[in-house]
Design a binder for these strands. Structure first.
Lengths: 237, 237
DNA sequence: ATGCTCAATATGTCTATACATAATAATCCT
DNA sequence: AGGATTATTATGTATAGACATATTGAGCAT
C-alpha cells in the first residue's frame, strides 16, 4: 500500500518526465496543480515547484499563473551552448594559443555594422582585426568593431599584446548579448588569412554585446574550416 | 542609515552582478558565504541561494560545497538555443511548410553512422531522407538513420505523410541528446536537392538523441544557404 | 612523511507557512 | 448585451528552521 514516496525534487522531476513520456500527460494536456501533486507525492509544494520550474526552463512544460501547467505542444529542444574565451577553446583542444593583431583603426563603420552598434547616433568606432592561432595554424579570424561611446577606455588600447575579447571582458563587462551562427563562403581576404581557398565554407559566429541599453562591441568570428560546435540536449544521462 | 534592503532574489542577483562588474569581487575571488550575505542583505539564506544558483547556472560564478562560491576565472558565456520542430521554424518565418520524403530503406549504416547509432552491435537501421520546404523553396535536407532496436515501431512507418522528426517526438521521446553545428560544402547530391551549387556553404546540424542508454536516431540536417541561428546571451535586458 | 579518521563548514535541499501577483471567471452596473 | 469591477485561483516568491552531503583540513596513527 505504501505509495512510492518522492522526496527529492529530482525524483519528482523524473516521475513527471516519466508520465509525459508515457503519454499519461500527452502534449498540450494540463497537469495537476502544485498543491495536488504535493499531496500525491507526499512532499511540500515548494519541492514540486522546484521540479516543475526546472522542467519549464528546459522547455518541456509551460507554466502560467492561474492558468496552470501544461505539457508543451511543440516541445522545443533547448540546448545550452558554452562559449569559452577563444584562448580556452584552443587550450582545451590541447594546442598552444597564439594571437596576432592584424589591423587597428578608428573609422566610420559600414552601415550594416552601424545599424547594430550605434543605432542612435552614427559615429566613428574602433575597428580591430586579428587572427587567433592554435599551435601555429589559423584558428579564428576576428573582425571587431567597438563602440567608443560605451567603452571609451578601449580607445587607449592598441590590442597588440592582449586580444580585444579578453580585454573587453576584463574592463567592459556586458549585461547581455546576441549571437548569430551561420555558414558563409570565405572571401578572398578571409581565405588568405585563414590559409584556405576563397569560397571555402566557414563557420561564422557574430556576437553583439550590450551593457544595459548601450551596445559595446560587434565581433564577427570566422572559424577555420572544420570547426564545429558541440552541445548537449536535455538533462544529464 | 537604512541600508538598502534587498528583498527579492532578483534584486540580490542584480547587486551581486553589480559587485562583480564593479570589480569589488574580481574574477577568481571568493565571495562571502550565503549566511553572511543573507545577514548583510537582510533576507533569508534561501533567497540568497536562489540568486546565486541562478548565476551559477549562467556560468558567471562557480559553487562547490564547503569550498564556497567564487567568481569564475574564465567566464564562459552560456547561450541557450531554442531548437523548434522544423515545421514551427518555417511557420515562424511566415512561410508555408511542406514536406517531401525522398527515400526510405532498411540498410547497414556506414561506419561513421554505426559508430554513434549502434556502437554495441552493428545492425541494420532505417534510413530516411527527406526535404523540408518553406513556401515551396528547399529549406532543409534531412538525412536520418533510426535505430530499430530502440524504436522498432518506426519500422512500420513509411514517413511519406508525416516527417520522421515529428513522428519520433510523438512516439519515441528521448531523454537526452547531442547537437553538432558545423559549416560544410554542399555535395553534388545536396546541391541538387537544395537547388544550389556544389561547394556552397551549408549550415549543418547533426542531432543524435538517446533514450536513456540507447541511441534512437542520428539526423543530419543541411540548411539551405543563408540560414542562421540566433540566440541570446545573459539574462533579460 | 604518508595514509586514515573525524570534525568543521558551505552549499544543497526539504518543510510549513505566508503573502504577492497575474490571469481568469464571476458579478454587477449601466 | 457590454464593459468595468471584484473574486478566485495557480503559480511565484519569501522565511525560518532543520537536516543532508560533499569537501576540506586538522589531527592521529602507521
Amino acid at each position: 500500500m505504501t505509495e512510492p514516496q518522492f522526496k527529492t525534487w529530482q525524483s519528482i522531476q523524473d516521475e513527471v518526465l516519466r508520465r509525459i513520456h508515457a503519454r499519461e500527460w500527452p502534449p498540450g494536456a494540463d497537469i495537476p496543480n502544485e498543491a495536488d501533486l504535493a499531496r500525491e507525492f507526499g512532499c511540500a509544494r515548494a519541492t514540486v515547484n522546484r521540479a516543475l520550474r526546472a522542467l519549464a526552463e528546459s522547455g518541456l512544460i509551460e507554466r502560467r499563473r492561474k492558468a496552470g501547467t501544461r505539457v508543451a505542444l511543440h516541445p522545443v529542444s533547448r540546448a545550452t551552448v558554452d562559449i569559452p574565451v577563444i584562448r580556452q577553446e584552443v587550450v582545451a583542444l590541447g594546442k598552444t594559443y597564439d594571437y596576432r593583431r592584424l589591423s587597428h583603426a578608428q573609422a566610420m563603420p559600414p552601415t550594416h555594422v552601424a545599424q547594430r552598434l550605434c543605432p542612435a547616433a552614427p559615429s566613428t568606432a574602433l575597428h580591430v582585426t586579428a587572427l587567433h592561432l592554435a599551435s601555429g595554424a589559423p584558428f579564428v579570424f576576428e573582425d571587431r568593431w567597438i563602440n567608443l561611446d560605451t567603452a571609451p577606455a578601449a580607445g587607449t588600447q592598441d590590442f597588440l599584446a592582449t586580444n580585444a575579447n579578453e580585454w573587453l571582458l576584463a574592463h567592459v563587462p556586458y549585461t547581455h548579448g546576441e549571437i548569430r551562427l551561420s555558414a558563409e563562403a570565405a572571401s578572398e581576404n578571409e581565405a588568405r588569412i585563414l590559409l584556405t581557398d576563397p569560397g571555402a565554407p566557414l563557420f561564422v559566429m557574430e556576437r553583439l554585446t550590450w551593457d544595459h541599453a548601450r551596445p559595446v562591441t560587434l565581433a564577427r568570428l570566422c572559424y577555420a574550416p572544420g570547426h564545429r560546435i558541440v552541445t548537449q540536449l536535455g538533462t544529464a544521462p
